[in-house]
Each structure stands twice: as structure tokens, then as C-alpha cells.
Amino acid sequence: MENKIKFILNFENVEIEVSPVKRLLDVLREDFNLQGVKEGCGEGECGACAVLMEGDIVHSCMVAVGQVEGKEIITIEGLQKTPRYKVLKESFEDAGAVQCGFCTPGMIIASDALLRKHPDPTEEQIKEGISGNLCRCTGYNMIIEAVKIAAKRGDGLW
């Protein structure tokens, strides 16, 4: 059975007729063609499908689209429309924190959520903030450094 689900997606009001139990990940990729949201593990453990829901990081593979009724969802494509993204992107590049790129959208989403809560994070807060995201190529030291750089460069953005 399909329902009309209304929510805010990347700063725009959207409405979709869909089964409320369909995964948000699938709706974002299939119905809205947002390919920055990836399926990695499908179990909420790798972070490749990370999005912001009401400003908090969630794994979209674990969220039924019916749960987002009336809520704001921001994907990496939406974050790209903000000045925060430019700072994060450049910081990740400068720190060498990008290799294959599969985890990068989720890492940037997690970093944005972290920096909005802790604009001047400690290393422990950074580790905790990105802990739900796996990276098999780059290694976490460069990602931690990228977040430190972004925190310094983004003074006032978060």
C-alpha cells in the first residue's frame, strides 16, 4: 500500500507516493536520483548511506521513508549547496583524506553534523563523530586532520 509522504529534501518541499516501509536510501537513489547516498553494508554500520535528518546523522538504509514525514533530510547533494561543504571538501582534499571516494560523502555528512555540535572539536570528539563511518582506503588519521582543518577554516559557519 502506498501513501503520500511529504518532507523537506535538500531545502525543497517534496511529496512522493510510496510504500511507507521502503528504505529512505532506496527512495533517495531511485526516486530522487541522488547517487551520493551509497549502499555499503545495508545494516547501518558503514556510513556510506549517511544523511542528515533534522540535523542529526542517520543511516538511510535503516530508516523507513514513512519516518521522515514532515522532517528535513539533507544529502551530500544538498550539503553541496552550502558554504560549509566547500570548507569541508577543500579540507578533505588538503589533508589527503580522499582516495577511492566511496566513504567520502558519508564522512563529510558526519563531519558537518559534528562541527555543528562542536565547532572546535577535540580529537576524541572527532573520533566519536565519525565513528559510524568506515573507510578502507584513506585511514582515519587524515580524515581526523581534515576535520581539524575544517574547524579552523570554517570559523563562524558551524
Rank of each mutant, 00 (worst) to 15 (best):
E145P: 03
Q99N: 08
G47Q: 06
K89W: 15
K117R: 15
R29I: 10
C61T: 07
S131C: 05
V27W: 09
E145K: 15
I76D: 03
L134W: 08
L24E: 03
S131P: 06
N3P: 00
L28E: 10
T82I: 11
E69W: 05
I109N: 04
K4M: 13
E12R: 15
R23N: 07
N3Y: 13
I57G: 01
E45K: 14
G42L: 11
L9R: 07
E77N: 11
V27T: 13
K89C: 00
C41H: 13
Q99E: 14
E93K: 15
A146T: 12
K22Q: 14
M107D: 00
E93A: 15
I108P: 02
V27P: 06
F7A: 03
G132W: 06
L24K: 11
S131K: 12
G36A: 12
V65N: 09
D26F: 14
E90I: 02
I143Y: 09
K38W: 01
K117L: 12
K81N: 11
V14F: 03
G42C: 12
T138K: 11
I143A: 12
D120P: 00
C100I: 08
D120G: 00
T104K: 08
L79K: 06
E15L: 04
E123M: 10
G106Y: 02
I149V: 15
K148P: 05
K117C: 07
G66Y: 11
G139D: 05
V65F: 11
A113F: 05
G78H: 07
M107T: 00
C49V: 13
G78T: 10
I130E: 04
P121I: 05
C61Q: 06
V147E: 00
L157S: 09
A151D: 01
L24G: 05
